[in-house]
């Protein structure tokens, strides 16, 4: 299907209102693997006729990695600029495919003058399914497959969202298996707290290596992620376990889009 994405600037110029702003995030905009997630989710929105827009070149980093690294100044400068733009457009609802953007927009922007209804895309997808707007007509592409779900820290422990993504996955015609550490005890992928941007401190192994062993133990065909940074780490973990071709990491949006038959998925 042909993607038709409009920006807030375009729609405002056309005098149209927007129901939901899709906050793409830096990873979703620039990281090649994460861009595919962005596309899959935009296709779902378009397919479900959600009246949405993106900020495009007006979007800036939320400041999450700076804040977690300890650079409160860089964070608040970034937040200040984003809030000016969001408030300028009168944005009320935001959906994002990144749990870090979700957490910071939802919890930390209000104190700086930016209050919005913020939703992570997994909750948004669950709502669309519950409303009957997403119909998983092609869910049988997952028939006979095992899926395990990786809780990201910033969706799970940070915001207590454990069930929505699992309920979305339950709609697929697959077997859901849990890793040894899951839900509130889920093991971090290793990217959070701005670790994504630097080398590890000396240690015995990388965190995603440890996580990848738990992934391998499930013998799942698919690891479902909800975060572009987890995506990088988990894929790296799959290759450390030499499971390329056997175990695939996909974002929930990609799985749902495949289940809807609006995007191909390669499980071989």
């Amino acid at each position: 299907m042909e993607l038709q994405v409009k920006t807030m600037a375009q729609l405002t110029a056309e005098g149209q209102s927007v129901d939901v702003l899709f906050w793409v995030g830096c990873a979703g905009s620039f990281d090649d693997r994460a861009k595919k997630i962005t596309r899959a989710f935009a296709k779902i929105l378009q397919h479900c006729e959600v009246n949405f827009a993106v900020l495009g070149s007006e979007e800036g980093c939320t400041g999450d990695p700076a804040k977690r690294a300890g650079n409160e100044f860089a964070f608040q400068m970034a937040a200040h600029m984003n809030i000016e733009i969001l408030n300028g457009y009168g944005v009320k609802n935001i959906v994002t495919t990144c749990p870090h953007c979700f957490n910071i927009l939802k919890n930390e922007y209000p104190g700086l003058g930016g209050s919005y209804e913020v939703m992570h895309h997994t909750t948004f997808l669950q709502n669309l399914i519950n409303e009957g707007r997403i119909k998983l007509t092609d869910a049988d592409v997952f028939k006979g497959r095992r899926i395990t779900y990786h809780d990201s820290c910033y969706l799970g422990r940070a915001n207590g969202i454990y069930e929505a993504p699992r309920e979305v996955l339950a709609q697929l015609d697959a077997e859901l298996v849990e890793m040894k550490s899951c839900k509130s005890k889920g093991l971090c992928c290793g990217a959070g707290g701005a670790q994504m941007w630097k080398e590890d401190e000396p240690g015995e192994e990388r965190i995603n290596t440890r996580r990848s062993r738990e992934m391998a133990d499930t013998k799942a065909d698919i690891v479902a992620a909800n975060c572009p940074f987890c995506m990088t780490m988990l894929r790296d973990g799959v290759s450390k376990q030499n499971l390329e071709g056997e175990m695939h990491v996909f974002d929930l949006a990609e799985l749902v889009a495949a289940g809807q038959g609006i995007q191909d998925i390669n499980l071989d």
Binding site: L3, V5, S29, F30, L55, S57, C61
Partner: peptide, 15 residues
């Protein structure tokens, strides 16, 4: 304005 030094004009390249 980005976590990596890409220009803002690249933000819509995913489309």
């Amino acid at each position: 304005n980005a976590a990596w030094a890409f220009p803002a004009s690249d933000r819509l390249k995913w489309t």
